[in-house]
């Protein structure tokens, strides 16, 4: 009997592969809906989009020309179809602000932003997890209480307040150590000028560390107080072995979820940070595009961020699942 059920389950796809496919399909569906919302949102602009972009003093001829360029003279389904197929085939259109191809100006910004997010996320994760685990191991010590109070305060600060505080402290009023703006020279990427990266990265790290610290501490404390850790202690294992082999692996699952959330948070955080420091990334690109009402650029950047959200979500779910031994078995 056991053998038979074993064979039957073996024929089914692996539960994790199945989950991956389901999540991927759901992600694609979500993106499609997001794309439709973005399209419709730009479509329900009060009044004519061409007038909105050119201003009400524009000549009739210019308005008609722009209407043709944006396909505004066609029906809404035609417009949607042209837009969606263009998106899928990589024809993203031209910027309305300067007439250049959208991808040409979004791509270098995307690379810079990705670098900023990766560096800040990596440093923030190491610091946050380290400090959180340390606080959990020394629960109720002075270090634990002090770090809790400090991080509770820092966690509440808006990103731009942290950025302004760093600028005041390190580059204008108190010390003059670092440049207050991070204008990467055009044609080069962010990693070629590491000095300019310091303040934006520090700001983002300060924003994410409190949250990471708090969640890691919670996960670690829960693991340390669990039955299997008590069992390991009763067996007389060394504290080192108890922490590294028995407690830590069980705190990894929740911590990975938190790392995923932190990266998602960074995707929103770059908008403010890049604007404060004049860092040429997609966050600043979005703010500029919103100020210029540059619809094609707005659409692309919002879609990129939504895609990032979907991918990160799937990744964290799968990794957390693989890292949690008791949830790895098919139910």
């Amino acid at each position: 009997m056991v053998v038979v059920t074993g064979r039957l389950t073996a024929k089914r796809p692996h539960p994790i592969a199945q989950l991956l496919w389901r999540r991927a399909a759901l992600g694609v569906a979500t993106l499609l809906v997001v794309a439709t919302i973005v399209f419709l949102a730009t479509e329900v602009l009060p009044g004519n989009a061409a007038y909105a972009i050119l201003g009400h003093t524009a000549s009739r001829a210019r308005v008609i020309a722009l209407e043709h360029q944006l396909h505004l003279n066609r029906g809404i389904f035609d417009q949607y179809w042209i837009w969606l197929t263009g998106l899928l085939s990589g024809r993203l259109g031209d910027s309305l602000a300067n007439g250049m191809p959208v991808w040409g100006q979004v791509e270098p910004r995307l690379v810079n932003s990705a670098f900023l997010v990766l560096v800040s996320g990596a440093i923030g994760t190491v610091l946050g997890v380290g400090l959180g685990a340390l606080a959990a191991l020394r629960k109720d010590s002075f270090f634990d209480h002090a770090s809790s109070v400090v991080f509770l305060g820092v966690a509440a600060l808006p990103t731009f307040v942290v950025a302004i505080a760093l600028i005041i402290l390190l580059s204008t009023l108190v010390f003059h150590l670092l440049p207050a703006v991070s204008m990467i020279s055009p044609g080069t990427y962010a990693w070629s000028q590491p000095r300019l990266m310091v303040l934006p990265v520090t700001t983002l790290v300060l924003i994410i560390v409190p949250y990471m610290q708090r969640m890691t501490r919670a996960a670690m404390v829960e693991a340390l107080e669990s039955d299997y850790v008590e069992m390991a202690r009763l067996k007389g294992l060394s504290e080192r072995r108890v922490v590294l082999v028995h407690a830590l692996p069980n705190a990894v699952g929740p911590t990975i979820q938190v790392i995923g959330l932190v990266f998602l948070y960074l995707a929103g955080g770059i908008v403010v940070v890049e604007t404060v420091f004049d860092f040429p990334g997609i966050g600043q690109g979005l703010v500029n595009a919103v100020a210029d009402r540059d619809l094609p650029v707005i659409q692309i950047i919002v879609l990129i961020l939504a895609a990032f959200y979907v991918v990160i979500n799937i990744l964290t779910d799968v990794i957390a699942l693989l890292a949690t031994p008791r949830r790895r078995i098919a139910r």
């Binding site: 759901l26 979500t30 993106l31 809906v33 997001v34 919302i37 973005v38 949102a41 730009t42 329900v44 602009l45 009060p46 998602l264 948070y265 995707a267 929103g268 908008v271 403010v272 979005l286 703010v287 595009a289 919103v290 009402r293 707005i298 919002v302 961020l305 939504a306 959200y309 979907v310």
Partner: peptide, 20 residues
């Protein structure tokens, strides 16, 4: 909820403000 979550909060607000 899933669809709305795909917009970071400040970006959702920016998108609406940019339109109106």
């Amino acid at each position: 909820v899933d669809v709305l979550l795909a917009f970071p909060q400040i970006i959702f607000a920016l998108l609406l403000v940019s339109l109106v």
